[in-house]
């Protein structure tokens, strides 16, 4: 034992749950990840008190960087109020006692699953992604021993062949999320299962991006302002999904929308996936085409009710 370790009492956990030795190990992996943008650093992921696949990688990264004066936002599917976001936020409230928020601009650390907030992130913010399968080549070649060689030799032909086969078969690339990117012109990287709509946001982002895959035991990073290019072809340039309607609640355009089914007769509306963004717009007086719809009232009302219940710390 070194002087920096102290045994835990029963039922009492260290700040942010992880012991200091584990944090140091993860911190060193983060530094190497930053030094080699897009390269997946193996780390001795720990068993967490939540299942593998439910954000243990992101949680370990957040626990290792989090400090007492941080303000944490946790989102899943763009929303602060989805079940797993609630559970993870609660975990850090309990184990670290840090301030939490729903407001993107107030957060110093944002842990996310499947989305990037619509609002541009700043230099003083860090975004932590939960990653299920960090290896972008995994579905083309399941063996780690092989994919590691491909990354080492920068052999990404297989990926281009796959994308091109899509085009030959369908006329377009049939990958809609976890769309592979090339980081700093060297490593092909999986941006986690965010919709490809969010890919442009990770290019030259002002905030530091950290990616944690707990079950697969990998950490990777993209430093601020790093060039991140979505893979494409000259004759088939990368393009994002476009919605032909604005958000039904706040009228926002050029944002990612969730499709909400209103009844069993085909009634549906589209609303912002980023719940904080939508709310801020509505508070500023923006109204969407369906804002007066009774269903919309429930959706919007529920959200703002929850907002007022935001834990005060």
């Amino acid at each position: 034992m070194t002087a920096q370790q102290k045994p835990l009492d029963e039922g009492e956990y260290n700040f942010a749950y992880l012991d200091e030795q584990t944090k140091r190990m993860i911190r060193r992996a983060i530094l190497k990840g930053i030094a080699v943008p897009g390269y997946q650093v193996p780390f001795a992921s720990r068993e967490m008190p939540m299942p593998y696949g439910w954000g243990t990688g992101g949680v370990q990264v957040t626990a290792s960087i989090l400090g007492a004066d941080d303000c944490l936002k946790v989102i899943d599917q763009g929303s602060d109020d989805t079940t797993n976001a609630v559970a993870i936020r609660g975990f850090f409230e309990k184990t670290a006692g840090v301030e939490t928020t729903f407001e993107t601009s107030k957060a110093s650390i944002i842990q996310t699953r499947h989305r990037i907030p619509e609002k541009d992130l700043r230099e003083d913010q860090i975004i932590v992604f939960q990653v299920p399968i960090p290896e972008p080549l995994r579905f083309l070649e399941p063996r780690e021993t092989e994919t590691r060689k491909m990354h080492a030799l920068e052999e990404y032909g297989l990926m281009h062949v796959k994308l091109y086969e899509d085009i030959a078969k369908n006329g377009h690339i049939a990958t809609t999320y976890a769309y592979p990117v090339l980081v700093n012109n060297r490593y092909v990287m999986d941006p986690s299962p965010t919709p490809k709509f969010d890919n442009p946001k990770i290019d030259k982002m002002a905030a530091l991006q950290l990616y944690g895959a707990g079950r697969e035991k990998r950490i990777y990073a993209i430093p601020p302002y790093t060039e991140v290019k979505s893979l494409d072809f000259e004759d088939y340039p990368f393009e994002v999904q476009k919605f032909d309607k604005p958000c039904g609640l706040c009228g926002a355009e050029n944002v990612y929308l969730d499709e909400v089914i209103l009844d069993d007769k085909g009634g549906r509306m589209f609303v912002c996936s980023d719940s904080d963004y939508c709310e801020e717009r509505r508070e500023a007086g923006h109204l969407g085409p369906m804002a007066a719809d009774p269903n919309a009232m429930t959706l919007a009302g529920g959200t703002s009710d929850q907002h007022s219940e935001e834990p005060a710390r």
Binding site: Q4, F15, E20, R24, R27, L31, I65
Partner: peptide, 21 residues
């Protein structure tokens, strides 16, 4: 060593991480 091993190490790390990033 550190007066507060947990918080001092965390602050130290964030500084090093910011420098590396």
């Amino acid at each position: 060593g550190f007066a507060d091993p947990v918080q001092d190490a965390q602050r130290g790390f964030r500084t090093i991480m910011n420098a590396m990033a």
